[in-house]
Design a protein around this nucleic acid. Structure first.
Lengths: 219, 219
DNA sequence: CTTTTTCCTTAACCCAGGTTAATAAATAGA
DNA sequence: TCTATTTATTAACCTGGGTTAAGGAAAAAG
């Protein structure tokens, strides 16, 4: 069987986690993969439904959000190369609390829960990959939580502009506002504040206004 | 070697995750475990230091917090039976961004990063346990995030009183306030509001004021 | 290109929570 | 026990973000 180009990206991802991945093991994986496409606006996941797949994005863009008394609260974006799912629902076999919707036409590699369990049984190393993926997701959530507690909204937005310009390019402002936990109106204010700031700031301390490096303090 | 009573609780925990855990594998684990005690106020982890252990709590109580311009922001509590650590720092081998401090005299079973890697090498099933633990931590963070987005502060506090009375008993109010993301003064207001509410509420809709069950909506 | 819809911005008003301060209650130390 | 320190409460004031509303820009539909 010749390698499907649709599995190349996920193969590279698995190899990056487990360079020793054998071609036998890989074949077994691809037996369980299925390709699916979503048109802009379609849903990968809906609230109330148990997530039955994890989906690796070949291309496209998704958003995850909660619906809380009529309002959408964006919690995550997924782009090409990411694993997307309500992983909590997938793991717990409980109805999802979130929606995951395509913001662009998107192609994913699906793997169902049952198929994944088969893989875990038949390929012990899969547990290793599964561990690394879960750890990676955990780290990401830690990063997010730390940022929310640690960084002002204004700086969080500045960080997005600086570090994730693709978000600004591909996602409407009101979703980014929601992601930051504020209203679109508030994000407008943030942006106008940022505008004034950056016009003034050149006069700021030229000598390294670096964040202090915090070392272990005494109790 | 006769079983140490200090490892009984963690043994039960591992067995709950992997009933098939062999005694050989368990012996190998205990070879790497060390017992440590912390007096109230002492630190398990300090900001700026790479977390070198994961610590299973035999008894006691810990809090994890960020220090952001002089203020403590509590992000987590750990009690007997929990695994405590700055797991992000532990996994990434990067300096911790958090402090973890004992709120009571505490006894932990330590496992160092290097020892854990040895265990992962020698016992393939360990990856399975590691995966489940990482997944569990991920699920907990999801729960927390969902709650923060979904539930009002007043209801979050009510939920703590209802579901985690041990938190109320063992932790000062101002730390719970911090955990909820508000000031102690705000928590006082929340409590007084709750007082008024519960005195009035008996007159509320007697016919099942249940949260609507949300099913998959149409796109 | 025009129309329609979606998205963004600005302004005025309001309010929950932060801030400060003062007091009371509870806990720890002597 | 009594004192000192920590913790909790309450009130007055202030501020930043929510809310509402309206106008303008941009994108999609025709």
């Amino acid at each position: 069987m010749e390698p499907s180009p649709q599995f190349e990206r996920i193969r590279a991802y698995y190899l990056s986690l487990l360079p020793a991945l054998t071609s036998d093991a890989w074949e077994l994986c691809t037996d369980h993969f299925t390709i699916r496409t979503l048109k802009k606006g379609e849903f990968l996941q809906k609230q109330g439904v148990v997530a039955n797949h994890v989906s690796f994005l070949n291309y496209g863009l998704l958003r995850m959000y909660h619906l809380v008394d009529g309002r959408e609260k964006v919690s995550e974006f997924f782009k090409e190369g990411d694993y997307a799912a309500d992983y909590r629902s997938f793991l717990m076999r409980e109805p999802a609390t979130t929606f995951v919707q395509a913001l662009e036409d998107t192609e994913v590699v699906d793997l169902s829960f049952d198929d994944l369990q088969v893989i875990y049984k038949q390929i012990p190393e899969a547990n290793y990959i599964g561990r690394l993926i879960a750890e990676e997701l955990f780290k990401d959530m830690c990063r997010r939580t730390t940022t929310q507690v640690t960084v002002s909204i204004d700086d969080q937005y500045a960080a997005i502009v600086r570090d994730k310009p693709w978000l600004i390019q591909r996602v409407p402002q009101y979703m980014i506002a929601s992601y930051l936990g504020v209203t679109p109106e508030a994000l407008s204010r943030i942006k106008s504040r940022a505008g004034k700031r950056s016009r003034k700031i050149p006069l700021r301390p030229v000598t390294a206004p670096v964040a202090e490096i915090v070392t272990a303090a005494q109790p």
